[in-house]
Simulated assay, not measured.
Amino acid sequence: MHWLRSIEATAPSYPAVWLIETARRPRNLMERSQLRRETAGALLARQLGCPEGEIAIGHDPAGQPKLAASQAGRLHISLATRAGIVAIALAEKPVGVDVELVDPAGAIPHEALHPDEQQMLGAIETGMRPLAFARLWAAKEAYVKALGTGFTRPPESFAVSLPSPERFRIDDPSRGLRAEGLLRTIENGGRETLAAAAIVLEGA
């Protein structure tokens, strides 16, 4: 998987994830959606070699973003926004990407976690727990985006493990599925630390 940080960078192959830092701070869901679409439109125009005005990002019945077939063939897309960072993932198979802010003062929603995840976080040093949780939750979000379900399924119904700072694993017994994804930790202009996660479902 290629990880890119510039909106002007083109990927030589797929899958690829762009983590684009912007100066904007969306205040609500509408502004976040607008920032995602504008940033993705500019990036995709360069990546796909077409005018930006011709980029059309629609949604499937489950609300997941989808490129017009005439523009991208069989490419799958996933988008995320957090703290001015826009994440854009492209792959030839179902892909999910997410970005989460590391919040040292944030409460961890233990009731939304799988028991194995609760145990894992409980064993981590207190000071490192916010980063671990951000990685875990970004991984969960990325996975359900790749599935195309979003959190219509309970987040505690599958387990994320973090074998290293660069990788995560999914164990989803209800689907008989085990998968692995990639993690990145990024600094947003020295202001915030964020955890990014991306996964491609190879067997989908």
Rank of each mutant, 00 (worst) to 15 (best):
H2K: 10
H2C: 02
E8G: 05
A9L: 07
P12R: 09
V17C: 15
W18A: 10
W18L: 08
R25C: 11
N28G: 12
E31G: 05
R32I: 04
G41K: 10
A42M: 09
L43T: 02
Q47Y: 12
C50V: 14
E54N: 11
E54D: 14
E54F: 01
G58V: 01
D60W: 02
P61M: 08
A68C: 07
A69N: 07
S70V: 08
R74M: 01
R74D: 04
I77E: 04
L79P: 05
L79T: 10
T81E: 14
R82K: 09
G84S: 07
I85A: 05
I88E: 02
V95T: 08
D98A: 07
P104L: 05
A105L: 13
I108S: 00
A112G: 00
H114M: 03
D116P: 05
D116H: 08
D116Y: 01
Q118I: 02
Q118K: 10
Q118N: 11
M120F: 13
L121P: 07
G122I: 00
A123S: 13
A123V: 00
A123T: 08
I124C: 05
G127L: 08
G127H: 05
L131E: 04
A132W: 02
W137M: 09
A139S: 15
G148A: 12
G150L: 00
F151I: 12
P155C: 03
P155Y: 01
V160H: 05
V160W: 02
V160C: 06
S161Q: 14
S164E: 11
P165V: 13
P165N: 12
E166R: 10
I170F: 01
D171H: 12
P173T: 04
R175Y: 02
L177N: 04
E180R: 12
E180I: 03
G181N: 07
T185D: 04
G190S: 14
L194H: 03
A197M: 12
G203M: 07
